[in-house]
Each structure stands twice: as C-alpha cells, then as structure tokens.
Nucleic acid binder design. Sequence first.
DNA 1: AGGTTTTTGGACCCGCCAGTCCAGAAAAGG
DNA 2: CCTTTTCTGGACTGGCGGGTCCAAAAACCT
Lengths: 191, 191
Amino acid sequence: MRLTEKGRASRQRLVEAASLRLRGDAPGAMRLEDVLADAGMSKGQLFHYFPDGKEQLLLAVARYEAERVLADQEPHLSALDSLASWQAWRDVLVARYREQGAHCPLGALLAQAESTVGAGEVVTALLDRWQRHLRDGITAMRAAAGAEADREAAALIAGIQGGVQILRTTRSTAHLEAVLDQFIERLPSGP
Amino acid sequence: MRLTEKGRASRQRLVEAASLRLRGDAPGAMRLEDVLADAGMSKGQLFHYFPDGKEQLLLAVARYEAERVLADQEPHLSALDSLASWQAWRDVLVARYREQGAHCPLGALLAQAESTVGAGEVVTALLDRWQRHLRDGITAMRAAAGAEADREAAALIAGIQGGVQILRTTRSTAHLEAVLDQFIERLPSGP
DNA sequence: AGGTTTTTGGACCCGCCAGTCCAGAAAAGG
DNA sequence: CCTTTTCTGGACTGGCGGGTCCAAAAACCT
C-alpha cells in the first residue's frame, strides 16, 4: 500500500488513539467506534489503512508501545553504570507508573499478547532487549559472570512486571518499589 | 435465594465450568454458551442462579479461584520454616505452572479484576493473605524485622506474579525460576 | 489540465451473544 | 396427595459492533 505524507499521519493518528484507549480497556473491550471518535476519523479510513481490521490495528499498537516502553526509560537504561544512574532509572520508572496508575502500556501489551496473533513475538522481543540492557548494567556494576547477571536481570524484569500488574489492581506502587529498592540495595555487593 | 442440595451442585458446576474456560479465554471473550455447553446446562439455569448474569458469575469464579490459588500451595505455604520446605514449595509452584502453561488461574483473575466490578477486592484480599504467609516464612528463617520481611515478601510476590505473566507469553518458566531460586539462595543469609 | 491514485465519510449489513420469558418437570413439605 | 417452591429447557429478542461498499473530495503526477 502506497502512502502519502497525509496518509502516514492519519494512520499514525489511529495507532495513537487506539493506544490511548487500550490503557483503559482490555483489547477485547476496545471498540473501533471509540478509537475512530477519538481520532476524528471514519470507518472507511480505518479499513483503508488496516485492511485486516481490528487485529491488524492492535498489532501496530503493540509495536508502537513496545518502542515507547524502552524509549521512556532512556537515557538511563543505556547507561546503568553507577549507583546514581540506577537510582535515577528507578525513580523514572516509579514516577511514570505512579502517575499513570491504571494506564499502563505494558499491561495492555501483555493482555494483547494473549488475544492478538503475532503480538506474542513483539512482547518477547521487547522483553529480550530490556533484559539485555539490565544485564549490561549489572555487569557494569560488578564483574558478575554473564549467565549469572542474566538470571538476575530476568528476575528483576519479572519483579517489575508483577509489581506493575499488582499496581493496576491495588493502585499502590508498594510492590513495585519493594522490588526495585531491594534489587538496588544488593546491587554493589553481589549475590 | 433458597437452594436445595441439587441447586447448590448445579450452581457449583457452572462456576467450575466457567473457571475452566477462563484459563483459555479472556473474561471478555468467554461466552456463556460455551460455559453452558461444558456444564451441560441451559440458559435458564444460569440466570436462575446468577440473576445478574455474566458479571455475577465472573465474581463467583474469582472467589472460587482465589481460594484455589492458596489451597494449591498447601501444605507447604503454611509451614515455610526450613530451607527444605521452601524448596518443596518452590518445586510445587514451578511444576504447577509448567504443566498448566497458558492455563493460569491467577492471570485470569488479574485480568478479571480490571473488567469485573468487585473482583479487585477479591484479588487484593488474596494478595494480602499470600503475602502474610510468605512474611511468616521469612521471619521463621531468620530474625528479620517484621517490616523488612514484609517488604521482601512483597517483592517475592511481585516476582512470582511477573514470572507467571511472562510465562504466559513466552511459554518458558525461566523468569519464574530465576525469581524463586535467587530468593531462596539468599534466604538464610539475610538481606 | 486531465487522468490516476489516494484519502475520506458514512450508510448499511449481518452475525453474535447476553439477557428475557415462559412453560413444563422435579422436589419439598405438610 | 395436593400445593408450593425450586429447577430445567430452549425459543426468542435486541442491540452492539466489526466489517463492507461506494461515491465524493483531495492530492499527486507528468
């Protein structure tokens, strides 16, 4: 499909509107009509840019969000080489989720992964990239064996993930903070 | 609503059939007709036992599952007083989720919490009870201050939660195991 | 300028599925 | 027994929302 400048912009507006909607609704509950209303567009346009309809749109949103999740943690995520930078990263993460509350791109992504074909791969790729960043940060802090640092990074990601999920239902960042703080506390000393 | 013996059994059959369905489908995607077919019952019965329909059924399922989540970790969960018992508990958890794969009662519960009114409270209560068990286990292993043990328990729960969620999309228990193993490794020595 | 392609709008269709209704079968129970 | 309550079955409805279609407007191209 050939797209003009205007076309690309319209397509992007749809993705962003859907992305916003998804932070509140489950993917199954998101209605095309709402997305259209938010974006100020018509059904015809949506199916012009996404011939396969809802599923294709959701997949595009998944890709879009995956990019944002990592981008939002920069510039810290790529330079976790001092205790101060880990702390700064932690603060960004907590602040972000605290202010978003139930609005959580990652949670929405994971939920999509179960319903949308292909979203699973997007999420897995995101998880891999994220974990690699954290592993690098861990090895930068102390000479841990690569495999061990990887396991620690895996546990940390799982903790963040779960902390955010719990945040979505309890509205409290306590679990998320517990994970991050305890990890950073024992970061310099090693396992 | 007065229920006879037979009535209670029928009602329970519905809850169990719905619970089973929910392990595969998102709550929004679960169809009443499927549940009815599984349970071998008719629409009339469902609305006889759950006048408020789907939502009320989902809430009943949430309560039912919350009970099971903790019950399935017994007898270990209530007696985490030795390294061996922690190990046994860990093995039960991993084995359970490995064999279930995508079939995950907890994940379904959390997903429901966002869509069903009242399910949030059920999940929060479950989380509290679970965390209390773990905190008791931690203090039993070493004389940690109550607050500190509570924070550790919170982080552990978040890790498990996230590990399971990642398992659902990656089909690998690696993250879950990383969380559990690292926690147990540093359990005796303290923070 | 004129033909071509892209973009836009919205009316319409149609299947799905939660929820309703009622009538008949089975228990309770006195 | 006979009455009353509970239980069961299934036909029917209503609206919701994804997807189709077509025609008009705008942009592109040479």
